[in-house]
Amino acid sequence: MSRSYLFIPGNTPSMIQNLDVFESDAIIIDFEDSVSSFDKDSARILIKNFLKKYSYNEVEIYIRINSADSMYFLEDVKVTKDLDIFGYVLPKASVEAIKELNKLTDKAIIPIIESPMALLKVEDIAKEKNVVALLLGAEDYTKELGIKRTLEAVEILYARSIIAITANAYNLDSIDTPYTNKEDEEGLLIDANNALNLGLTSKSSIHPNQVDIINQVFAPSESEILEAKRIVKKSEETDKGAFSLDGKMIDLPVIEKAKKVLEKAKKYNL
């Protein structure tokens, strides 16, 4: 139910020890792209010692391990599987890779959908055990397709949509790809709203200064909360499965959605 997922480099103490300051609902400690091959061991040991010493209730912590076909995968999991973390973010996800990971741990998994093949198989991926959310990795996905990334993001319209739809159908969260220009707040706002409007439930980011905007975009608005309150209240007062409110038909899925909105609002102090 997180609104924001912030990647932070796994071998940088100044970022690690401030991970709860950035107000991201979830933190993804990265062992993959932001850690050089020479320092993979260093990052594992740093994070192990850090998480043994400090624990966090207000933020969900995930680790992005290296992909299942890399030489670092096994050791990444081995060193971290007993730590107090929510789960793993798995890059270059495939059904097989998730099965591999599930053999090693029972923790939650967020696969990154970052290839055309993974997108084709997204429903199978969503059905795998321990998968709790789907994360779109648009940079690698468009690179593989050989197309350009743009602010308008028309090129990932289908990918965003299918991920949002699949996640929704299987009751998972869907996490949008990061907006890579960390200086451009207006661009981020547009990009996040585009994702929201396609049904994605949250967005990842690569810089702490992006978190505020993402949280605002993916939080239920005041009017949404108000309406949800009225729906839930009326549903409790009536024993009918469906009823009408302001001329609109309210049935079970709508009530469930309203409850979710309220849950989210409560969690994020709105």
Partner: peptide
């Protein structure tokens, strides 16, 4: 400042 800690303090 663009430093995230500074930004948070300002916020």
């Amino acid at each position: 400042t663009k430093n995230p800690i500074g930004v948070k303090i300002a916020k």
